[in-house]
Nucleic acid binder design. Structure first.
Length: 225
DNA sequence: ACACTGATAATCT
DNA sequence: GATTATCAGTGTA
């Protein structure tokens, strides 16, 4: 267990790095290192899978129908953390991008634990291997100890409980793209990105409601291009 | 390895 | 009242 503060990752991200379109931010975030500190200790993880959510242009985005109490953080500033509660059991974490009147965020879908593995394992008793510790968005938040309390924290501040650092740049052919996981609306848009070299990337599952039949027709024409 | 299902509550219509 | 950017457990191969 290395205790060096600079153990993983390079410089911290600034707002200029993340104040861009969420789709463009995906390859920037792949390989970056997320670091979360609590009273129990610090867990660091290398991000290997992300998904872009493009605000009011994106039917799958929480911000599609405008600003609400839940999604307020998505409107910026960029570089803050958007955490939400899903399925009555889990939290998911996003990095806010865009900003300046636009809402946008990138969901952190999977990561490899690089430091604090004992603490991560204690938080994830169901994980059957190290690669499963943060394989999936809600598993990732559990392993890092992220909850609703972290909604809105500044990832670019040195004294923040959750920080984000630039990592090694992925090799050119290492980044792959495909449709987002479990998303019904705009399920065909390739706004998920991942590192093909990682075994911690989660498995694809198409969206759609279980137990209900009848396709809903969502126009995705404005998403193309 | 893959397919299916119950759990469970905030959020929005 | 319906929906949900999910997970863990179970069953089948």
């Amino acid at each position: 267990m290395s205790r060096g503060g600079q153990a993983a990752g390079g410089r911290r991200f600034g707002r200029a790095d993340l104040g861009i379109d969420p789709v463009a931010a995906c390859p920037v975030l792949l390989g970056s290192v997320l670091e979360a500190t609590s009273a129990d200790g610090t867990v660091a993880a290398r991000v290997v899978e992300v998904e872009a959510y493009c605000g009011t242009d994106d039917p799958a985005s929480h911000a599609y129908r405008g600003r609400t109490a839940r999604n307020a953080v998505m409107w910026g500033p960029a570089g803050h953390l958007y955490v939400y509660f899903v399925y009555g059991l889990h939290f998911c974490a996003n990095v806010v991008c865009a900003g300046d009147g636009q809402a946008g965020a990138v969901l952190l879908r999977a990561a490899e634990i690089t430091d604090g593995q004992d603490l991560a394992t204690a938080r994830r008793p169901a994980a059957r291997s190290a690669r499963d510790l943060a394989r999936g968005p809600a598993r990732l938040t559990a392993a890092l100890g992220l909850t609703r309390e972290h909604n809105g924290v500044d990832l670019t501040a040195a004294d923040s409980p959750v920080r984000l650092r630039a990592g090694e740049r992925p090799e050119p052919g290492e980044v792959e793209h495909g449709p987002r996981v479990g998303v019904a609306a705009a399920g065909d848009v390739p706004w998920r990105s991942w590192l093909s070299s990682s075994r911690a990337v989660s498995r694809y599952r198409p969206g759609g409601r279980r137990g209900a039949n009848g396709p809903d027709s969502v126009t995705t024409s404005r998403l193309e291009g």
